[in-house]
Simulated scan of single mutants.
Amino acid sequence: MSDLDLILQSLEALAEREGDPAPAIYARLFADHPDLEPLFLMDTDGGVRGSMLRQSFDCLIDMAEGGIMAPVILGAERVNHGTYGVPDNLFDAFFNTIRDCVKAAMRSDWTAETDAAWSRLLARTAALADA
C-alpha cells in the first residue's frame, strides 16, 4: 500500500472514530504545549482552530499526494505563525499532534507501515522549514 493510501486510510479512520477530531487534537496540543493555548484566547467559538485544522489536513493530503500547494501554504504559514511567536519546532508539533491523535483513534489498527508513512510525511513537512 502506498504512503498516500495509508495516510488517507488513517485520516478516514480518525473521522469515523472521532467525528470532529478538533477537540481531541487541541486538547492534546495544549496538554503537550501549554504555552500555545493563550494564542487562541480570542477564538471563543473554535472557528480559528477549525479552519487551521482543515487547512492542515489539506496540506498533509497534498504533501502525501506529492502536490505543490502544501509547500507554498506551509511556507507562508510558518512566517505568519512566527509573527505570533510560534517557532518552527512548535509549528511542526501541530502535525505531530495530528499524527498522535490519528494513532490513538486507530488503536490496534495502527500498523508499522502506517507509522512509517506518517514518519516520512512529517519529515517532509518539517524539511520545508529548511527550504
Rank of each mutant, 00 (worst) to 15 (best):
residue 9 Q to K: 12
residue 9 Q to T: 12
residue 9 Q to R: 14
residue 11 L to I: 08
residue 11 L to P: 08
residue 12 E to I: 02
residue 12 E to Q: 04
residue 12 E to F: 00
residue 12 E to G: 01
residue 13 A to M: 12
residue 13 A to R: 12
residue 14 L to R: 04
residue 15 A to Q: 05
residue 15 A to H: 07
residue 16 E to P: 02
residue 16 E to M: 04
residue 16 E to N: 06
residue 17 R to H: 10
residue 17 R to K: 15
residue 19 G to M: 03
residue 20 D to E: 13
residue 21 P to K: 00
residue 21 P to D: 07
residue 21 P to E: 00
residue 21 P to C: 03
residue 22 A to C: 05
residue 23 P to S: 01
residue 26 Y to K: 00
residue 27 A to V: 03
residue 28 R to I: 02
residue 28 R to T: 03
residue 29 L to N: 06
residue 30 F to K: 01
residue 30 F to P: 02
residue 31 A to S: 10
residue 32 D to A: 08
residue 33 H to S: 04
residue 33 H to T: 04
residue 34 P to H: 04
residue 34 P to C: 00
residue 36 L to A: 08
residue 36 L to P: 03
residue 37 E to D: 09
residue 38 P to L: 10
residue 38 P to W: 11
residue 38 P to R: 14
residue 38 P to D: 13
residue 39 L to V: 06
residue 41 L to K: 14
residue 41 L to G: 15
residue 42 M to E: 15
residue 43 D to E: 14
residue 43 D to N: 14
residue 44 T to Y: 03
residue 44 T to A: 06
residue 44 T to E: 12
residue 45 D to A: 14
residue 45 D to N: 14
residue 46 G to L: 10
residue 46 G to I: 11
residue 46 G to Q: 14
residue 49 R to M: 13
residue 49 R to T: 02
residue 49 R to F: 03
residue 50 G to V: 08
residue 50 G to N: 12
residue 51 S to A: 10
residue 53 L to G: 05
residue 53 L to V: 08
residue 54 R to W: 03
residue 56 S to K: 05
residue 56 S to V: 11
residue 57 F to D: 01
residue 57 F to G: 06
residue 57 F to I: 15
residue 58 D to L: 11
residue 58 D to Y: 03
residue 58 D to M: 10
residue 60 L to V: 02
